[in-house]
C-alpha cells in the first residue's frame, strides 16, 4: 500500500509539473520526451559536516533548455565499501528537484585502502521513471583557514591535508582553491590559486570595508575537485577598512540642493511673472477705485439735481 502511494505521488507530481509547464504542449510533455538527469554532489561544510545533494530533473530531448524538476522522489544516500553498505540518510526531492541531507562530522565513513570514501545516491524508480543512481569517490580533505597579520600584512593562510587511518597528516598537492568574501547578495571572489605542499597564502586587500562593524567573512573554497569534491571553510575577522568619508558634493543635478543657476533662473522667471500678476491686480484695484469715485460723483450730481 505504502509503495502504491509512493508510486502515485511521484507520477502525480511529474504529471502536475508537466501539465503546468509554461511552454507545455500536451504531446511535448510526455515523460518519454524527457531524458532524466540525476546529479549528485557533496560539500564538506565549515563545521566538517558533509552535505549530500541530488538534483533530479528531466531534460527535453529536443529542446535542451526545457527542464522539468522531479518532485517528491525519495533518494537514499549510502556510504559503500566493497559489499558493505551504510545508509547515511534519505530525503525527498523538493519542487525544484533537490534532495539533500547533512551527515554530521562525527560520522565514521567506510574508507578503502587508498583513503577514498565512496558515496552513492539512489532513486529506486517507479512505473513512470526508471531507477537512477550516481556515485562519488572522494578523499576526506581537511581545510584549515587562518587569518593572520604577518609583519602588518593581513594574510589569508589555507592549510589542506588528509589524515590516514593512523592519524598521519598528508599535505594536499595541486588543488585549486578560491578565496572569496561574503557580499550582500553572494560571495565575491578575491583570488583563485593552487594549494602547493598543503599550503596557500594570499595577501588580503586593504580596501574592503566589511560590514558596519568592519567584520569580513572570508571563505576558502575547493570547488568540484575530482579528488575531494567540494570543501568549504570560513572565518570572520575584523579586517574591514573604511574609506575616508565622502566629502559632500557641491550643488549638482543629482545632489540634494540643485545647481545655483537653477535657483536663479527659476526665481527670476517666477518672480517676473508673478510680479506682473501683482501689477495687473493693482491696476484692477485702481480701476475699481476710479469707478467708485465716478459713482459717487454721479450720485452727488443726481442729488444736486
Amino acid at each position: 500500500m505504502k509503495n502504491n502511494i509512493f508510486k502515485n505521488q511521484i507520477i502525480a507530481s511529474l504529471i502536475i509539473v508537466l501539465a503546468f509547464s509554461l511552454n507545455a504542449l500536451a504531446q511535448k510533455n510526455e515523460a518519454s520526451n524527457y531524458k532524466m538527469r540525476f546529479k549528485f554532489k557533496t560539500v564538506k561544510q565549515t563545521d566538517n559536516s558533509r552535505l549530500l545533494e541530488v538534483n533530479f530533473y528531466g531534460q527535453n530531448k529536443k529542446d535542451r533548455k526545457d527542464k522539468i524538476s522531479v518532485a517528491d522522489a525519495e533518494i537514499n544516500f549510502y556510504n559503500v565499501l566493497n559489499e558493505e553498505e551504510i545508509l547515511l540518510g534519505s530525503a525527498k526531492t523538493s519542487h525544484e528537484g533537490i534532495a539533500k541531507i547533512t551527515v554530521p562530522n562525527s560520522q565514521k565513513y567506510l574508507i578503502n585502502e587508498v583513503g577514498l570514501i565512496t558515496l552513492i545516491a539512489k532513486f529506486e524508480g517507479t512505473e513512470a521513471i526508471d531507477a537512477e543512481e550516481d556515485d562519488i569517490s572522494i578523499k576526506d580533505l581537511f581545510l584549515e583557514l587562518n587569518l593572520e597579520e604577518i609583519d602588518s600584512i593581513k594574510t589569508v593562510i589555507v592549510n589542506a591535508f588528509t589524515i590516514d587511518s593512523l592519524g598521519v597528516k598528508t599535505p594536499a598537492e595541486e588543488v585549486d582553491v578560491i578565496i572569496s568574501i561574503q557580499g550582500m547578495l553572494s560571495k565575491m571572489i578575491l583570488e583563485e590559486g593552487t594549494i602547493e605542499d598543503g599550503v596557500f597564502e594570499y595577501e588580503f586587500p586593504t580596501n574592503i570595508p566589511g560590514d558596519k562593524e568592519g567584520n569580513i567573512t572570508v571563505f576558502s573554497i575547493i570547488d568540484d575537485s575530482d579528488d575531494f569534491g567540494n570543501v568549504i571553510q570560513q572565518k570572520t575577522e575584523n579586517w574591514g577598512v573604511f574609506d575616508k568619508e565622502i566629502k559632500s558634493e557641491g550643488n549638482k543635478l543629482w545632489s540634494k540642493a540643485a545647481p545655483i543657476w537653477m535657483y536663479i533662473v527659476l526665481s527670476i522667471l517666477i518672480l517676473g511673472v508673478w510680479a506682473n500678476y501683482v501689477y495687473t491686480i493693482s491696476f484692477l484695484f485702481k480701476i475699481k477705485k476710479e469707478g467708485k469715485e465716478l459713482e459717487l460723483a454721479q450720485q452727488l450730481e443726481n442729488n444736486q439735481e
Binding site: T280, I287, K289, G291
Partner: peptide, 21 residues
C-alpha cells in the same frame, strides 16, 4: 465689473494691463 465705466483713463489702464498680460 469692478466699477468699470469705460472712461478714457480706465480704458487706457485696462488696455495696458491686457497688453502686458
Amino acid at each position: 465689473a469692478i466699477g468699470y465705466q469705460n472712461t478714457d483713463e480706465q480704458k487706457e489702464k485696462l488696455h495696458k494691463i491686457t497688453k502686458t498680460m
